[in-house]
Design a protein around this nucleic acid. Structure first.
Lengths: 234, 234
DNA sequence: TTAGATAAATGATAATTATCACTCTTCAAG
DNA sequence: CTTGAAGAGTGATAATTATCATTTATCTAA
């Protein structure tokens, strides 16, 4: 959990704002930026809320979730430190999704007015934001395919690969750097908590993972990848 | 099917290039643009192909498809005249998806080098492309939810709403402006052609649609929308 | 430490959906 | 017009997955 820092001193190298360092636009961004802590399970923003601005995660982790009227949630994105939130509503008056903290999370906030003006002024920031959009769109569309075509075994394996990709594992313990409930994993995989539990038992029996009290240890990442290899693109 | 036209004279008002009319950048774009016809069922580009450039649909219709190694296809996007293709690979060396003509389709092509330079130079084009990305990303993520949570009835209804949204219906005949095979509808809905056929029969029995030789007539669009209302966002 | 609440795990079963095997219909080519 | 291929439709069944009901394990507050 980090203390409030200036952008130049922030250790999050992957943050888009890093592209502004040294430019004339950084000052406006920094002057309009606030930093807040969100406790685990609290909303950073909610679908339907008026859009105030754009968020950057300084530390912690967030799930971006869409909820159906029947109460079911679908995790559409996981985000770690350095990543941006709220950009899906760039052209909109309201947030379309919920951003919920998966652990205590420090988030930097910039008002839309400031961020949008900076995008219009800094070709470099704008360009990198567009690259990010292209990348996220591709990933989202692959996830449409996964949901349409994968069986539960494959979906749960894919969910773990995604969690590992975003949050990584502790190199020593091999434990995923985040502890997620069975329901969160299920909402990411697109199935039920019971099916996740069953599949985890199978994976553990196959020595692909180990269930630890706090989180999951990934024993054989290649073995997990092999489960979903039919869905790889070129 | 249109003949080759200049951008200023093209009747496709929704094309992004329209934002360049009157600007100094239009000439480079126009000089670097070619127009080609793709027959129904042919590829405009294939996943894995090196990226040559960006396409704009002048007339016709295209499905953007991702294919799994097991041969299954998932339609991730439908696109009509005026819309852009190939922008998902903006930052990439290869196309990630296939674009396949759903009917004879005329497409304008701009080399990546020209298009990217124009984006960097024209803040207006860049901005509108970003808006398009935000919009498409939201839609793609909603589709993740639909695939994860909807049953077949709902998925097929949603597929028809999407087809109607993109291609519309003939106001007189109420027939969808495009004739899609049961397999194409299934690849859009994320199910099998048999299930699509069954569901169509049910919808017809419920007077929501009528099956015509050439296409489908949507009799009660509100009734179709009601089937998926649980998944609406705010 | 205890009690209560919640999460995880498990077994059984109901519901859903893909698959398979066919028949019927339509279309295109000769 | 005929024939063959392909698409659409249908019925049956196998496979998969959600749901339900319970038990076990864990966590938190007093």
């Amino acid at each position: 959990m980090r203390n409030k820092v200036q952008c130049e001193e922030c250790s999050e190298d992957s943050c888009l704002i890093k592209y502004l360092i040294g430019s004339e636009y950084l000052k406006a961004v920094r002057n309009g930026m606030t930093q807040n802590v969100y406790k685990k399970d609290t909303h950073i923003f909610k679908e339907g809320d008026p859009i105030f601005g754009i968020y950057f995660i300084q530390s912690g982790g967030v799930k971006v979730v869409t909820t159906s009227l029947n109460g079911r949630e679908q995790v559409v994105r996981l985000a770690k430190a350095g990543q941006i939130l709220g950009h899906r509503g760039l052209d909109s008056a309201r947030y379309y999704f919920n951003a919920i903290a998966l652990m205590d999370t420090m988030v930097c906030f910039i008002e839309s007015k400031v961020f949008n003006a900076t995008c219009l002024n800094s070709a470099e920031l704008s360009y990198h934001l567009m690259i990010l959009f292209a990348h996220e769109l591709r990933r989202a569309e692959l996830r449409v395919k996964y949901q349409a075509q994968m069986n539960i075994r494959e979906k749960v394996a894919e969910a773990f690969l995604y969690i590992n990709e975003v949050f990584g594992v502790n190199p020593e313990t091999k434990l995923l750097n985040i502890s997620l409930s069975r329901q969160d994993i299920a909402d990411t995989a697109g199935t039920t908590a019971e099916q996740v539990t069953r599949q985890l038992r199978d994976f553990e029996n196959e020595k692909l993972i180990a269930r630890d009290k706090w989180s999951i240890k990934i024993l054989d990442i290649k073995g997990m990848e092999k489960i979903v290899e039919d869905y790889a693109i070129f």
